[in-house]
Design a protein around this nucleic acid. Structure first.
Lengths: 149, 149
DNA sequence: CTAGGTGCAAACAATTTGCTGCTCA
DNA sequence: TGAGCAGCAAATTGTTTGCACCTAG
């Protein structure tokens, strides 16, 4: 049932492999494991990601997780978000996919993704009205999820 | 010409004094100086704020700036934003005032504030559609300001 | 082979906290 | 007077980097 999900990972991983070789860098089992783990559990911070990777490969170090995330970030294959807890959270970014934003439960921390074209259009208008050329944005909604209300 | 601006500070400072006494805490010259400096220069990070405060009172320490900002934050008198540079930036928050968001120039760092009711309304709709009770939000637009394009 | 990667530990940077003397209410 | 501050420096926490050994290509 998650064949599509796995196929999705395969495609994304192939992008990683492609970008890494064009960049004269090497693919390693650690990098692959980090990428795969992140792909299957979005919105992880480095500590959580490191723990999950370590469940599979005991030897992977913290620094390698950071360095791999930096690589993925440079290749545009992941996106970082800084929420209130002071840690950076990562999730995979699939090229042609629409940008999405986050709604975070302030009690349990659950994160829901959403996208809204009307807001995106308004953002462009606002930027133009101030003479800015919009390149990117970040929007987080905070509140209580259904089960925490 | 900035009489209105000063009057604004007076009101906000009085809120600070009021909240601080209700909280069984004390007003001190350092706290007042930190509050006043922040009021007159929004979007400062701790280092910048500390430097400006020190221009006026050489003895104020880093920790006091942090502790005062925590107080102000707890009282709802300032808002924190985490932009990409890893430091927290503070600005005063006046009670009845409408929430505003930020547009940041990715080249020179200039920050413009704006507010947009249509987007706020859409945010409420999105939250409801996911069963969330919206309490707060954050929206940052990134791009190039007119002089950096 | 060898440029580049890994893990570890040390270095950094932002923020917090313990402590001792000081001060507002 | 006494509970609560201030300043300093040491401690934490998140992230980066130097180095000696290891490995993908």
């Amino acid at each position: 049932m998650n064949a599509g999900r796995l196929a999705g990972f395969d495609g994304w991983r192939d992008l990683f492999i492609d970008r890494i070789s064009r960049d004269n860098q090497r693919m390693t089992p650690q990098r692959l494991q980090i990428a795969e783990t992140l792909y299957h559990h979005g919105h992880l911070n480095v500590d959580e990601l490191h723990r999950r990777v370590r469940d599979i490969d005991q030897t992977v170090g913290y620094a390698t997780v950071y360095r791999t995330l930096k690589l993925l970030e440079r290749y545009g294959l992941v996106e970082v978000s800084h929420f209130a807890d002071g840690t950076a959270r990562y999730e995979v970014h699939v090229g042609g996919e629409d940008h999405h934003d986050h709604m975070i439960c302030t009690r349990c921390g659950k994160i829901v993704e959403f996208e809204n074209e009307a807001i995106e259009a308004l953002q462009v208008e606002i930027a133009q009205a101030h003479g800015y050329k919009l390149t990117n944005h970040r929007m987080d909604l905070f509140g209580l999820c259904p089960s925490c209300q």
